[in-house]
Design a protein around this nucleic acid. Sequence first.
DNA 1: GCAATTTATGACACACACTGACAGATGACA
DNA 2: TGTCATCTGTCAGTGTGTGTCATAAATTGC
Lengths: 205, 205
Amino acid sequence: MGLRERKKEKTRLAILDAALDLFLEQGYETTTVEQIAGSVDVSARTFFRYFTGKEHVVLWFHDNSEELVTEALADRPDSEPPFTSLLEALRTMMRLFRDGTPEETERFLKMQQLLENNPVLAGKSVARGVETERRLAVEIARRQGCDAETDQLPHLVVAYAMATVRVGFECPRPRETDLAQMLERVEASLALAERSFQPGWDLVG
Amino acid sequence: MGLRERKKEKTRLAILDAALDLFLEQGYETTTVEQIAGSVDVSARTFFRYFTGKEHVVLWFHDNSEELVTEALADRPDSEPPFTSLLEALRTMMRLFRDGTPEETERFLKMQQLLENNPVLAGKSVARGVETERRLAVEIARRQGCDAETDQLPHLVVAYAMATVRVGFECPRPRETDLAQMLERVEASLALAERSFQPGWDLVG
DNA sequence: GCAATTTATGACACACACTGACAGATGACA
DNA sequence: TGTCATCTGTCAGTGTGTGTCATAAATTGC
């Protein structure tokens, strides 16, 4: 990796961290892009070259997580029931969060804290999730040998799996800024889901 | 209802219809508020007195639907299993859509068409749904005699119910602009959900 | 090392969404 | 009819986001 690329990555993380801190200090809405850019000595124009917009900063983790889940899902065998594959992929994602560097963990927790006390941002995060769901549904449909365009089941399976983690992240409230406890809550949610469905409900035919 | 109130309602619907048509003709992003306001002969400032923003026009139906579901849920007995109550409340909502006036139906279909071929708007719609979910979870928790802040189950039950209708609306694609077929798809989705869960999964304890 | 080429950045101008404040128009009601 | 509350347009201003161009820096080839 050349100097140029390393510099870019450093700038991206600097902007990300500065934005996160400012959002937590003085609120998301009241923080301007100019402030964020100013606090890391870049122009506002440059900010938009690293992030598509102010909210992209918040959704940055979502984009990363989607990649992780997609890769983890690819490691599950096609023969496994799809809902099981999804839950296991999500468990892998949570483990990767747990095993991250201290800096990554800090960012992750700040992110969660931000989403927790800002319903609008939480909404935007979920909105991004819709596109993720569609992509995952296509993959699940492929595994089941059916068509994602016409068959509802893959979409339903994915939507339920995503809803399960989301509830784990959101509830119970108020949440502690503790990674371990958060992982436990999500695991509790996943376990709850696992014993709620009829055997074979997620298989076509 | 006085003249003033009638005039306001007329203006609100005029703006709504004009915006919907413009969005469908030339796209959501490329349509400006000034255009919308201009096409119904009001100032842009007045537009913002009727709708909180450009996207509020799109979410107008969501706000209405939430009211319908909340009312329909209130009519279900507390003793009924919560997931059943929710699905039935959602069925009632769908029936109200079916029994609407031609104008209401037309708006509804335009709305759906707009959400169908614009993922960003679909996302915003789902984002609004998160707040709805929270409110419904509180009601479900009350019925089950548990605490929505600490117990995950009410949130899970609501999230699954909402995900079910959402999948019904979104899938299969491409969708016909036919109300009856849309109702059928949602009903198929609800029916699929009904036979996917273990008996009693949605009851606490 | 040194040019040639790509790429990141800043500076500027601009479109659009949205808000606050004020003045004038219009329904409500005695 | 006159007073009052409310609706509306105009105007000025803030903030987000984009296109464009010149400059500075890194990369590549010699």
